[in-house]
Design a protein around this nucleic acid. Structure first.
Length: 818
DNA sequence: TAGGACGATCTTTTT
DNA sequence: GATCGTCCTA
């Protein structure tokens, strides 16, 4: 490589590798010890394009990190000459840690290890002016993006009821994921939104972003591509710089990422992509499995190495997962094997409803805990985040420690976003979106009218809002009251901006929050969550400390939307299947395997067969997270939008092989009858889905599974109406169905009772939920609030006058008769 | 202009 | 069931 003065040594890489590898390795390349032959080959094949197809649990991350360590310790490149891209911040963090574990401090010199987006920003910051931005541009998040689009829609006089900004946002996002600029959007597609104005709106949005000196997430890559394409010298610089390129989770890259990568990889051609087509689960976000499928044709002469030896899961788990994923077409095809024991079979358990599902899983976890298992070795992986709630509620009543991974994000909370908006206004006076957000938060009498005036002034003078406000304050265009209030704000910002230069950012933040009246606003608020919000603000200020300056902090927030949760405590992990990728646990619970939920109806409707296959891969990912125990659950009834809906077991259950699966009964008694499931024709009867054959929808009702469900439903509802009713069974959860396991028994008790409504089709009960068994005047006990009297009943919600805690609204399942 | 009441709409997954 | 947005009134 000529002209690479900053390379440690001249000469061909292979040559140097040969020359240096021998002595170094002889000296004991301890990091190579313990790799299997395929892994070792993947680590040592440093030159030329390489695709590593790494199945679940085959040591993918280990290969990647060892490979980097190998390159560094052979002296083939300096840390700053390695480009290592991951998909998530979590993965980047982990990789950095693990490389550090092998090579030590040297990892600190790897500025180009990160997510696609963080590396994209890094490049854009260096060459902002080449793509029409000023350095220090803002990165908008989804929320800002939507607000901006709303304004554009309004300006174009498009009814945002009919054409929601959200929809436009995802359309534009889709284009950006495919690497399309407004000009490149095919005319036919541009017509899809708002009667043919989609393309125009996209262009308007981009223009607006430029005016705001802002980019959105998609731009981080799209503008990056433009930068490299339009500036050969810049591209050449990066070609010289990046001697080795490594990509993690290659199956998740979208077209834009792929184009970006390909531009950069044309340099050294030492590109190594690691991925597993069976774990591609981000198709909905534009990921192209094709990228991995066509690697060999993109990089002629590419070497492909398969890692199929699984070190994680037992034989039964692998067998079940492998059989499931075999139902997919269009795979590169790998068969995982392990030399470990068969272990326990994968269990499948049916529960009456989602609450009972949570109850049963809670009990299983307590059993495991009693047997000495650590809670942090247990995870519950759900398809959709709303499923988490029931588990949380259950765990709170049980007093079981749990941790929500990737749950409601810290930086997405309103109070944090408000605080951030103040800081953004200081760092970026042109950030109109931030200014709009906080002009009147807390309330300072600057409502719609005032804001409109500021907008008009801004447009007339061609300046950002903050500047327009400053100008208005100097004139007498505003009403005195408004003027005074706005003047105060404008002056405050000027003052803060001066102070910003003189003090650490966390101290500044404290001053800003205090002087703006923002903290005061929450202190005055006596709603239940005000205290929590104040805590969050404190946490925000605290988290700012380690950053170099305010800008550094703001950048971190826009790219790294998660905070590192308090690890270390022994707790069950609760997360979505998506965020579980890359993790592993001794025991994994997989609740909610029901048609419509998993596979997700929307995925089926929108993506058809591809959607189904992606859902199946998601199931595969879930199963393969487990080392020793995988426990699948489904519920016959689930509450969606506050309505109880009956559900049909997932088709994926049918795709699990008998030999590796055991059907068990829910501890709480199943509403479906596990006893039916033995025999050769184990069938859960999801029936033809609405998606497959819409016209035969009715036949769903005649499948054995449906009839079983109906029968059981009748039984349990009878039990419900005749018993304590509602979800009041707090004291003895399992007793409600009193061992009703077969449908015969269920029916016997189900014939009577007017409360046991069975409405045709899916709707089972009204939104108010089952009426509470508690009555006004009844004495109750609540774990947290103590004793009290019921003063009001509404559905299953009670108003209770507690002796000590005062009047509270509680769900009746949290209290018991005193 | 602010606050409250009411109604519509939603729930896939995330950088 | 919850949140968000809109409308109405003080």
């Amino acid at each position: 490589m000529p002209g690479a003065a900053h390379v440690p040594r001249a000469g061909g890489i292979a040559e140097r590798a040969r020359a240096m590898a021998a002595p170094r390795r002889a000296a004991g390349a301890s990091y190579l010890v313990g790799l299997n032959p395929e892994q070792r080959e993947a680590v040592e094949t440093v030159e030329g394009p390489l695709l590593v197809l790494a199945g679940a649990g085959t040591g993918k991350t280990r290969v990647l990190t060892t490979r980097i360590a190998h390159i560094l310790s052979l002296g083939l490149a300096w840390p700053s000459q390695i480009l290592a891209v991951t998909f998530t911040n979590k993965a980047a963090r982990e990789m950095k840690e693990r490389i550090g574990g092998i090579v030590g401090e040297e990892v600190e010199g790897m500025p180009w290890l990160g997510t696609f987006h963080s590396i994209g920003v890094r490049m854009l910051r260096r060459h902002a002016e080449l793509v029409g931005l000023r350095s220090g541009f803002t990165i908008l998040d989804t929320d800002d993006q939507i607000r901006l689009l709303k304004q554009i829609l309004q300006a174009e006089d498009i009814d945002d009821k009919r054409w929601p900004a959200k929809m436009l946002a995802s359309t534009i996002d889709g284009w950006k994921n495919r690497g399309l600029t407004p000009e490149q959007v095919p005319a036919g597609e541009g017509a899809t939104f708002a009667n043919g104005r989609g393309k125009m709106l996209y262009a308007a949005y981009q223009a607006r972003l430029k005016a705001l000196n802002a980019v959105d997430f998609g731009d981080l890559l799209l503008e990056g591509i433009r930068l490299l394409r339009e500036n050969p010298d810049v591209l050449a610089e990066y070609h010289r710089r990046f001697r080795f390129i490594l990509v993690d989770e290659y199956q998740d890259t979208n077209v834009a990422q792929y184009l970006w990568l390909r531009l950069l990889a044309q340099g050294s051609r030492n590109v190594c992509c690691v991925g597993d087509d069976d774990q591609s689960i981000y198709g909905w976000r534009g990921a192209e499995v094709d990228n991995i499928l066509r690697f060999e044709s993109d990089f002629p002469g590419a070497k492909v190495i398969r890692l199929e030896r699984n070190y994680r899961s037992t034989g039964h788990i692998l067998g079940a997962a492998g059989h499931l994923i075999a139902h997919n077409e269009g795979r590169l095809g790998k068969t995982l094997f392990s030399e470990g024991a068969h272990g326990e079979k994968v269990t499948v358990t049916g529960a009456w409803d989602s609450q009972e599902e949570a109850r049963a899983i809670g009990e299983e976890i307590e059993d495991l805990q009693r047997q000495g298992h650590s809670l942090s070795d247990i995870a519950i992986l759900v398809r959709a985040s709303f499923q988490m709630r029931e588990f949380e509620e259950r765990f709170v009543t049980l007093g079981l420690n749990y941790r929500v991974v990737g749950g409601p994000r810290f930086y997405e909370r309103a109070e944090i976003r408000d605080a951030m908006a103040y800081l953004r206004c200081i760092a970026q006076p042109a950030d109109d979106l931030a200014f709009e957000r906080i002009v009147n938060v807390p309330k300072r009498g600057l409502g719609d009218v005032a804001l409109r005036q500021i907008h008009e002034q801004a447009r007339a003078a061609g300046v950002p809002l903050q500047e327009a406000a400053r100008q208005l304050v100097g004139s007498d265009a505003l009403k005195p009251k408004v003027r005074l209030s706005l003047m105060d704000l404008v002056q405050s910002f000027e003052r803060w901006r001066e102070q910003a230069a003189q003090m650490p950012q966390n101290q500044l933040a404290e001053i800003v929050l205090d002087e703006s009246g923002y903290t005061g606003m929450w202190q005055k608020d006596r709603s239940a969550d005000a205290a929590g919000r104040l805590d969050n603000l404190k946490e925000l200020v605290r988290s700012m400390e380690p950053f170099e300056n305010l800008t550094g902090f703001l950048e971190h927030v826009s790219l790294v939307m998660d905070t590192e949760g308090a690890a270390g405590q022994d707790a069950v992990s609760l997360m979505t299947l998506h965020s579980a990728k890359g993790l592993e646990f001794d025991t994994v619970f997989l609740p909610g395997w029901e048609e419509g939920l998993f596979p997700n109806q929307r995925a089926l409707d929108e993506q058809g067969r591809a959607g189904l296959e992606e859902e199946r891969r998601l199931a595969y990912v879930g199963l393969t997270r487990a080392r020793y125990r995988a426990k699948v659950y489904f519920a016959s009834n689930r509450r969606i939008h506050g309505l109880w809906q009956s559900s049909v077991p997932s088709r994926f259950l049918d795709e699990l092989p008998d030999g590796h699966v055991e059907v068990t009964e829910s501890k709480g008694g199943t509403g479906w009858g596990g006893g039916q499931a033995n025999g050769a024709s184990r069938r859960y009867g999801y029936g033809p889905s609405r998606f497959d054959q819409a016209e035969t929808f009715g036949s769903t009702y005649s499948t054995p599974g449906w009839q079983r469900a109906q029968a059981a439903k009748g039984g349990s509802f009878g039990g419900r109406s005749g018993g304590a009713g509602g979800s009041g069974g707090f004291a003895e959860p399992a007793s409600r169905f009193g061992g009703v396991s077969g449908h015969a028994a269920g029916r016997a008790s189900g014939g009577r009772g007017s409360g046991g409504r069975l409405i045709e089709g899916q709707l089972i009960a009204t939104s108010t939920g089952p009426a509470s068994a508690f009555k006004r005047g009844e004495r109750v006990f609540h774990q947290k609030f103590g004793y009290g009297d019921v003063v009001g009943v509404e559905g299953n919600k009670l108003t209770v006058q507690f002796d000590k805690a005062g009047e509270k609204h509680v769900v009746d399942s949290f209290v018991q008769p005193a």
